Simulated assay, not measured.
Amino acid sequence: MKNTLVKLVGLSVNTSSFISKSFAAEKALSIFSTPLKGRPNEEQSDFLNTAFKEELQYNNIPIMTYRWLGKKETVLLVHGWESNSARWKNLIHELKTKDYNIVALDAPAHGNSGSKRFNALLYAEFINVVAKKYSPSIIIGHSVGGMASVYFQHTHQISSIQKMILLGAPSEFSGILNRYVEMLGYNRRVSNQLNSIIRDRFGVTPKEFSTSKFISNITPKTLIIHDELDKIIPYQDALLLKNAYHNSKLITTNGFGHSLNNATVSNHIHSFLEG
């Protein structure tokens, strides 16, 4: 049923492209950048209520942050697509036992943050606001949160950040976009116009927005963890990141999927932080 609905949406956008390519591509971009989930449920809200919460702002858009206080270095947690800060619950418990100072933020259009749309450039600016406020020395980013974290550091070069951990992070935005176009079955009229709109609106083509390119001019020591059976972000992306950045280490897992949310990964994170 889900696949049928996806194909019907793609067919509708394709049909509209013969009337207006621009309208069809705008619709395609809106679908691409609008999460269908990511707001916290009751259980997640209960956990997030254990934190000190503070709302920051970027261009009048609310950024919700959560803090669990500790005496060691500050760790900033950056979640991925259709998620929220509660996804870090297990890792937060581990970090708290080791007395790290923990900060998490909700992405644009996710959790309790504002915005109706999501994109990695806006997320990077959210991260910059939070980093300036709390001066983290460590960033841990999952999926597109890892991509946004690298772009943030590439753009702003915050000196306090000494280590980064990228969990299931994508390398090439063009790959993400191409998989979306393929999933919806968009025709060439839509896909070409979609690329043009992204270039005009964000000042960069999908091919130019590359984490492996951005990572080459940052300095933090970086740990990359990626599952070779990841069905969301191909393992090849991890190899691109590792090959692009000399000051990095790649840990390959098998069978943990894209979430990488388990004790083994937490142990790898701990070893890297303490090393």
Rank of each mutant, 00 (worst) to 15 (best):
S174N: 12
R179N: 14
S191I: 15
S149N: 07
I140K: 04
V150G: 06
V130G: 01
G168V: 03
S171Y: 01
K133A: 02
M183A: 14
S159I: 00
V181M: 13
F173N: 03
P170D: 05
K132S: 13
L167E: 04
Y134T: 13
N178S: 14
I176V: 15
Y186D: 09
V130S: 03
F152E: 05
Q157S: 12
G168S: 00
S159N: 09
S159E: 10
I176P: 11
I139N: 02
P170T: 00
G146D: 03
L166M: 07
G185K: 11
L184H: 10
I138Q: 01
Y180G: 04
N192W: 11
H142I: 06
K132T: 15
Q162G: 06
S137G: 06
K163D: 03
Q157G: 05
S160W: 05
T155R: 08
N195F: 14
G175M: 06
L167Q: 00
I139G: 02
S160I: 10
Q193T: 13
P170A: 00
V144L: 08
P136A: 08
T155V: 10
L194Q: 12
I138M: 03
A131S: 09
E125C: 04
L184E: 10
N195V: 14
G185E: 12
P136E: 10
M147S: 03
I165C: 03
F173S: 05
R189H: 08
T155E: 01
N195K: 13
G141K: 00
G185Q: 10
Y134N: 08
V181P: 06
E172M: 12
A148V: 09
P170I: 02
G175A: 04
Q153A: 00
I138A: 01
G175N: 13
I176R: 08
H154R: 04
I139R: 04
Y134K: 06
Q157C: 03
S160P: 07
V150P: 01
S171F: 04
V144D: 08
I140H: 02
N178Q: 15
Y151F: 14
P136Q: 10
F152W: 13
K133H: 07
M183Y: 14
S135W: 06
G175Q: 08
G185R: 09
Y186H: 13
L194G: 11
N128A: 10
S137I: 10
Q157M: 05
A131F: 04
R179V: 12
Q162I: 07
H156P: 02
S137M: 11
H154T: 07
G146Q: 05
S160D: 10
S149K: 05
V181E: 13
V144S: 08
K132F: 11
P136W: 11
R188S: 14
I138N: 01
Y180S: 05
I165L: 06
L184F: 15
G146T: 03
I158Y: 08
V190R: 10
L194W: 06
F126G: 09
Q162L: 09
N128E: 14
I161G: 08
L167V: 05
I161S: 04
I127D: 06
N192E: 14
L177C: 11
I140V: 08
I138F: 04
I127Q: 06
F126W: 13
F152T: 00
S137F: 07
Y186M: 15
F173D: 04
H142S: 02
G141I: 01
I139K: 04
R188M: 13
H142G: 00
E182H: 14
S137E: 12
S171N: 07
M183P: 01
K132Y: 09
L194H: 05
M164L: 09
E125G: 05
N192L: 15
N128C: 07
K132R: 13
